[in-house]
Nucleic acid binder design. Structure first.
Lengths: 326, 326
DNA sequence: AAAGTCCTTGCAAACATTTGCAATGACTGC
DNA sequence: GCAGTCATTGCAAATGTTTGCAAGGACTTT
């Protein structure tokens, strides 16, 4: 039957007589018919579904404001455009299986923090539109990339601390992100910002244990300010400090990365580098959907500005015994 | 070809000669063949995909620890069982369209806070396995329900406050949840706990404005303790209090609902009723998957115990001018 | 040695939709 | 009035997989 045309082909150039259309609709209603989207996808090779490939669902990843914002931006876009979002773990699983280019998705959002070489290769060979969100530039040369200007964000953070008089400013990386941190623009941005001021960059690699922070605070030549790689790390440091009675910012200044709800509600309210995560996620998703529908984006790479939300966790440097009061 | 059997039918009783199987696999490899899951779903009428129907993606919903935990529990289960999770907005959209029983999902997790009558009816008529997570009992009589023992949670909260000497204990509901709050077991649990102690229950309906809280604190006969309906509300009240210099717990005690990461990192650390959200979500999902595979669960309704995590936001009642020191 | 049984394999139908093409019919312009 | 055009509609093929059935072949048992 040409029933298909009236029921599904909204904007086609093939027209149907109004009378016939009405009749068809009537019969369809009467029969309680509604289209089977699997059969439709089967034929049309389109599923109106995109996959989100992210490793952030594991453990505390999903518990961060970062990830919530990401998800919020993505779902807003997919809902608006009447797409479905499918959540996948990694592309390759232990056994073969895994999500491959098996027709389930029209496109993929790739937002991995920890990069797996085999998987990256696989995504590269995917015959699908792919947008990369928040992964280091150049990971997937053929994909459209959405990243924040981390270098500038770190420049802002260092500038802020330097202007308060800090000289010993360290960058703290968590093990969770260590694999990406290596070539990451946050580390290099931090280093550049330090070097350009004649300061010595120092990168610490910390676990989430409170004891680690406590030990560190005992060092006579410890830093007077810390910038964290992640929201989660800032959170644990704040907690550790609270637990052992270290005052932020009196004894040490702290700048987080990602200015989230947590920064507002923690005490002290946390100074943090901000990036427009939700907007980026929204834009990336919308771009993917356009890509799916054949539209080419204006650029291959979109860079978003970082900001600095100055709150209460940064102050004048703590004067240690080592550094005489000038 | 009977290639299908060797490639897909893992545990069938139809056997294939090892030699043939090897040959088939070889050819498949050579041809770069991999199965198309849409076609497979089309034929088998199974998609290995479940839908999550939740209104929590809107605005701040996705930003709560509650929702993060929910998602975490669900994805853990789906990943383990090699299912895909699809994220949907409401079942019915403004226009007809919407997600219907159109073959896309093998089952549905229903976790709406705001109940829409039309939609509830629709889910009820769905010819699919459905599990209900965190919605009031009895909303969908035919579905398996997973809820927390809210009554007991509120009993714990009231008991804790009463034992500290509080008599004026109010329950605060946010407008976001007001539609569900009416018949909700949290409200009734609170009321029961109060009445059983000879105390007068008072339910406030607050927006998220700081001014509202400020106004309230000026009332001479205000309550000495508040229990909030949600994590988000507790968060905004904590923030409001911080902003206008009201001390928690010195001037007012606060108990939140949902003991999340925020409760740990806020200052003061927040006393809160806990429910095993992630576990519930995990169990619900696993139950749904079993249901899909034909297994019947032991019960139709699973109730999880609530706990009370006592932290720093609750203390002795503030002595107002009205109440003479005894 | 023949018949029967069991293991293996190939064929073909079915799933619900889309889509191109062709056919029908009506209308318009010369 | 005839030819050509356009609007409409119906037919049929194709999509990739599953699955039941039947046929073929080898082996066993009497």
């Amino acid at each position: 039957m040409s029933v298909s045309k009236v029921l599904h082909d909204r904007g086609t150039n093939v027209r149907v007589a109004p009378a016939t259309a009405a009749r068809i609709r009537g019969v369809a209603e009467q029969l309680g018919y509604h289209p089977n989207s699997i059969a439709r996808s089967f034929r049309s090779r389109r599923t109106r579904t995109i996959g989100l490939l992210s490793d952030q669902f594991s453990m505390h990843g999903a518990q961060t404001g970062y990830f919530s914002s990401l998800l919020s931006g993505i779902t807003t876009a997919t809902f608006e455009q009447d797409y479905t979002l499918a959540i996948c773990p990694r592309l390759v699983r232990e056994q073969e299986g895994g999500m491959k280019d098996d027709g389930r998705f029209d496109g993929v959002i790739w937002s991995q923090l920890q990069l797996d070489e085999r998987e990256t290769h696989l995504v590269g060979t995917l015959q699908l539109p792919v947008v990369v969100l928040h992964s280091p530039k150049g990971v997937l040369p053929n994909a459209i990339t959405f990243i924040a200007d981390n270098e500038h964000g770190l420049e802002l953070a260092v500038e802020h601390l330097a202007s308060l008089g800090h000289k010993r400013i360290a960058f703290v990386v968590d093990p969770y992100n260590s694999r990406t941190a290596e070539g990451n623009s946050r580390v290099s941005g931090y280093q550049a910002a330090m070097v350009s001021r004649g300061l010595t960059p120092r990168v610490h690699r910390w676990d989430y244990h409170a004891t680690e922070f406590a030990e560190y605070m005992k060092c006579p030549n410890r830093d007077t300010a810390l910038i964290t790689f992640s929201e989660f790390l800032a959170r644990t440091i704040t907690q550790s400090a609270g637990a052992i009675g270290v005052s932020i910012p009196d004894e040490i200044s702290l700048v987080g990365f990602d200015s989230t709800a947590f920064c507002e509600t923690s005490r002290p309210r946390l100074t943090a580098v901000s990036q427009p995560i939700e907007q980026m996620a929204y834009d990336a998703t919308l771009t993917l959907l356009k890509l799916i529908e054949g539209e080419q984006p204006a650029r291959r790479s979109f860079v978003y500005p970082c900001g600095l939300d100055i709150r209460e966790s940064t102050g004048l440097p703590y004067l240690t015994a080592e550094v005489p009061i000038s």
